[in-house]
Design a protein around this nucleic acid. Structure first.
Lengths: 155, 155
DNA sequence: TGAATTTTGGTACTAAAGTATGAGGGTAAC
DNA sequence: GTTACCCTCATACTTTAGTACCAAAATTCA
């Protein structure tokens, strides 16, 4: 199908040429009586074939249009989906419970709240929190939250 | 200058045509002796002018350049410079001192620290903090910090 | 199995945070 | 001038947070 379309112009050109054989023969016979007619005849032929050549070329050329690609930059703001800083988290050497407590702490929960949600006693939470502060080198929950967010070890 | 360049092909075409007048006359005289020479002669003319037409057309067409603009998405790691949510901040209706205290609070400072840095008594800070909690609808400094960061009213 | 670590919990205490209430001085609007 | 905030500070109290020290299960690892 593609080849048919590609060579459409060439086939058309062939057909037109075939038709011209007859047309030329007729013209040749008609102008034979007129003096100097041969010059006019050749002139017409030249003109016709020039136009034909231009027409054919323009149709062939159309598929060969130079395409200048201009890249237009569009800035797409990338909202980074927050990645936990695993390296910093490992440095602190928190155990799983301590990290769990830290997360709840940073959400604004009290020791009592945390104890309730983890089904532990307040004493246990206090122990975890104290160890947490020691490991994080802070002295209060507010400092712990601030530091944890700075280090990107919690959301 | 531009016009000269634009019509260069047309001028060239004209010159070639002038030269052809002589060439044709010479060919016409030469082939007059040969039988059926006129057909060959016309065929050559047709062929030549077709090629000429194609040549002219291809040179004219060459100046037709399509400009295709392709939008290229470029992902920029846009580090947004943090904008304080003024709307939310106004909703809370905090006065200047309360907001000042909130900022220091969120940095992990104790009431005593805040009092020292603002040259105020701890009592004053406690009052501000209490009013702050009431306006923010929270019950502790950790909740205040969490909420303030959520609302983006502090850095 | 034994040692180390984690997880849990307790008591006792101190420090800090938070609440409630009052009060005095300042400023700005009505 | 009175009303309404804003800012300051105080006292008294309750609650929560945080420290220190201890200890018993549970788990992990060599």
């Amino acid at each position: 199908m593609r080849y048919l379309k590609e060579f459409r112009h060439i086939i058309l050109y062939g057909l037109i040429l075939a038709m011209l054989v007859f047309a030329l023969k007729w013209l040749q016979w008609k102008f034979v009586l007129v003096d100097n007619a041969i010059d006019i005849y050749i002139g017409l032929v030249a003109l016709f074939f020039t136009i034909l050549g231009i027409w054919v070329a323009s149709h062939i050329m159309r598929s060969r249009v130079e395409t200048l690609i201009v890249e237009k930059e569009i800035i797409v703001p990338q909202s980074e989906p927050f990645a936990i800083n695993t390296a910093e988290l490992q440095k602190l050497n928190l155990n799983s419970r301590e990290y769990e407590v830290l997360q709840l702490l940073a959400q604004g929960h009290s020791n009592a709240d945390i104890a309730a949600s983890l089904f532990l006693s307040i004493s246990t939470i206090k122990t975890h929190v104290s160890n947490l502060y020691f490991k994080m080198d802070v002295k209060s929950r507010t400092q712990a939250i601030t530091k944890a967010k700075q280090l990107k070890i919690i959301e």
